[in-house]
């Protein structure tokens, strides 16, 4: 087993904001004796327990599965969405990747369509509305034909899967210098447009989802590639090309 290094001492600069109307500010906390085997969120848990006992408000942050799949957690750590370790959600980031006596800045996702609810918690319902616009295949329960009635090429199924692994965390938006939601939207469009089952609604889906994305107030894509670099699931950039292709076709 790993060398049980002694605890680390850290300085955290955390964004605190009481509610959507509050202006918010950075607050500095000192945490001591942090085990390198802790996850980043466990480190915040420990700080929060201390804050509760001191009668303070604990730092609000979203989290749930803590195994990197639900997409609920997410914070910008030292200027990088989910922190600098690649292909990792915040809950899967461990303290051993930080230096002793480090200063760590923790901020919420910053985007107008993701308003801050409290502290590090943001409202990502814009993503749900993009899915509502067309991110589905219309097939009421019980109406499906036998699963083997339509074979799907393995390469298509695999590529669709790659796009479908998106966990909807919003890191792509947080990292994009334009605040664009293109990678999220494109991942769903790609997933469904690669499958034969997704063809009937392919054009209308792309058009409706892109228009909803724009209506939510996300920025435009300038192909900087920042999104895919921070994506915990490594959703590739070519999904965006496919989205553009489907969208242009649908708009003709």
């Amino acid at each position: 087993m790993s060398e049980r290094a002694k605890g680390m001492n850290l300085t955290l600069k955390v964004w605190r904001q009481n509610g959507p109307e509050d202006k918010g500010r950075m607050v500095t906390y000192r945490v001591e004796d942090v085990s390198p085997d802790m996850s980043f969120l466990e480190m915040l848990d420990v700080l929060n327990e201390r804050l509760i006992l001191e009668g303070d408000d604990p730092i609000a942050f979203d989290h749930d599965c803590r195994e990197g799949i639900c997409g609920m957690c997410g914070m910008v750590i030292n200027g990088v969405a989910h922190g600098e370790q690649v292909a990792t959600t915040t809950c899967q980031l461990h303290m051993r990747h930080f230096e002793d006596n480090a200063v760590i800045t923790i901020e919420p996702w910053r985007a107008a369509p993701f308003p801050v609810v409290k502290d590090l918690v943001v409202d990502r319902s814009a993503f749900d509305r993009i899915i509502q616009a067309g991110g589905f295949i219309s097939v009421p329960a019980g109406s499906a034909p036998d699963a083997h009635s339509v074979p799907v090429k393995k390469v298509d199924a695999d590529a669709a899967f790659d796009a479908a692994t998106c966990i909807g965390c919003g890191a792509c938006v947080a990292a994009c210098p334009n605040g664009s939601a293109s990678l999220f939207t494109a991942a769903k469009i790609t997933h469904l447009s690669l499958l034969p089952q997704g063809q009937p609604e392919r054009a209308s889906r792309a058009k409706a989802m892109v228009e909803q994305m724009d209506a939510e107030g996300f920025g435009g894509c300038t192909n900087t590639g920042e999104c895919t670099a921070v994506c915990p699931k490594g959703i590739p950039l070519d999904t965006i090309a496919r989205m553009n292709r489907d969208y242009l076709k649908a708009s003709k």
């Binding site: 097939v139 499906a144 083997h148 074979p151 393995k154 199924a157 479908a164 997704g198």
Partner: peptide
């Protein structure tokens, strides 16, 4: 058996073999 049919029709990308079957 109906669940698999339903999920496939919804676009759930189950693992497939080279012949295109599940």
């Amino acid at each position: 058996v109906n669940i698999i049919d339903q999920a496939v029709a919804q676009g759930v990308p189950f693992a497939r073999e080279y012949g295109g079957l599940l």
